[in-house]
Amino acid sequence: MSAFGLHEPGSSVLHRAPAGPSLLFVLVFAATTVALSSPWWLGGACALVAAGFLVARIPLRRVWPLLRTLALLVVLILAVQWWFLGPAQALVVCLRIVAALGVASLFTLVTRVEDLVDAVERALGPLRRFGVDPERVGVVVGLTVQAVGTLAGIAGSVREAARARGAERSITAFAVPFVVRTLRYADELGEALAARGWGDRGADDVTRADTRSNFN
């Protein structure tokens, strides 16, 4: 099970909140954590995110992998930042990351990608006359969320295979198959999208009318 990118069905207030405003809130929240530099305020932000997980009644089995990933990140970042910036600054950076990643993953847990895509489409609608294709941007956003989950899944199974061969410490035993499988996934996904009519840049809108008659 991956840490990010999969919806957890539920009926809490957060699940029922409309996707558009929720997304806006997440963006503002993340921006605010960047602006804040008091560890107290940032700690408060983290507590707020944790409260959000409780309110949404996200089951522990979904929270665990997230916590593990966050803990790993925090340890790495703390070590590096401590060295460069000292303990106080390092703590601030870590709290910021926990708050921002926490709120983002909570959002993906309570929001169906379909709704997110719709929200993005609606929000970008007015930009259509500047040449933006809101549908396309919406789908790209949805796919990105989905891809994060898929990549985490690939990483998991590659790590498992490496462990089965007793190579859990080897970086190449992880990196080589991970890169190969990721590239193959990207390749096949691109082809599958094209086959489902999403690879095309509206290119033949001109020709569509005159070809249609041939099919009927």
């Binding site: 990118g5 999969l6 919806h7 169906r112 990608v113 379909e114 949805g142 796919l143 969320v145 989905q146 989950g149 898929t150 193959r184 996934y185 096949e188 996904l189 082809e191 599958a192 999208l193 086959a195 489902r196």
Partner: peptide
Amino acid sequence: VFTDPDSQIVMPT
């Protein structure tokens, strides 16, 4: 329809 369903399913649910 491709061989590997994992790469043609593009949405989470």
